[in-house]
Nucleic acid binder design. Structure first.
Lengths: 110, 110
DNA sequence: TTTGGATGCATAAGAATATTATGTATGTTT
DNA sequence: AAACATACATAATATTCTTATGCATCCAAA
C-alpha cells in the first residue's frame, strides 16, 4: 500500500460505498485499483478490519450472498451511518485540497 | 490533527523544507497552518519525533541557533537526503491525484 | 489432472505513526 | 502577575497498517 494512504483508507471505502450503494470487500479493492490505474492496492489485512470496525460502529451493514459458488459479503451504508460518511468524505476532500495547497504553493505576486 | 494527514505528515515536512531550504520545527507548524488556512494543525508530539527520525536517517541535518533569547533548531535536507525527499514528494503528488480520481470519479460518457 | 492464479473472506503478531499529556524555558501582552 | 505565544522534548497509549498465514471456490493452463 502507498504509505500516504494511511489514515485515508476508511474514508475512501466510505466514498466508494456512498457512490456505488453496495459493494463487497474484494470489489472495493478492484475498484480502487481501477480508479487509480493500479497505483493503490488495498491489502486485505487493512481492508477487512476496517469493514468490521465500521460494521461494529453501525456505519455499515453487511449481507452474505452466494454468487457462482463463492460467498461475498456485501456492505452498504446505514441511514444512521450516512451522516458520518458524508462528514468524513467532506473532510477528505478538504484534506485533498490542503495537499494541493502545500504541494503547489501559490507564487507570491510581489 | 486531521486524521487523514496520518502517513503524509513526514512528506509534507520534507516538501516544506525542500521549498524553503531551512526551517525550524515551530516554523513548520505555523507554515502548514498558514498554507491550509488553519485547517491543518501539526501537533508537537507528531512533529518532533518525525524530525528526529529524519535526522537519524541522515535525510535532514540540524543546527541550533539562538534568536531573541530562544533556541531554535533549524533543519535542512542533506544532499544525500535530497533524493529521498524528491521521491516522497512525487509519491505524495501521485497520491493527491489518486485522491482526486476517487473523490471526483469521471462520469461515464455512455 | 493437478497446479497456479484469481476470487473471496478472515485473523494474529508486529511495526509504524499519531494522540494526549506532561515538562522545561523564554518573551510578550494584558 | 497571569496568560499566551514561542520553542523544544519525551513517554504512555491508541490507532492504523504490514506481513504472514489460513481456509475455500472457480477457472485456465500444463
Amino acid at each position: 500500500m502507498n504509505q500516504h494512504l494511511k489514515g485515508s483508507l476508511s474514508t475512501i471505502i466510505l466514498k466508494l460505498l456512498h457512490d456505488n450503494g453496495r459493494m463487497y470487500g474484494y470489489e472495493i479493492t478492484q475498484k480502487v485499483k481501477e480508479l487509480t490505474q493500479d497505483d493503490i492496492q488495498i491489502t486485505e489485512g487493512a481492508l477487512y478490519p476496517i469493514l468490521h470496525k465500521l460494521e461494529a460502529e453501525e456505519v455499515l451493514t453487511a449481507e452474505l450472498e452466494k454468487v457462482d459458488g463463492r460467498t461475498r459479503k456485501y456492505y452498504k451504508i446505514t441511514p444512521k451511518g450516512n451522516a458520518v460518511a458524508v462528514d468524513r468524505i467532506a473532510e477528505l476532500k478538504a484534506f485533498a485540497e490542503n495537499l494541493n495547497l502545500i504541494l503547489n504553493p501559490k507564487l507570491s505576486l510581489s
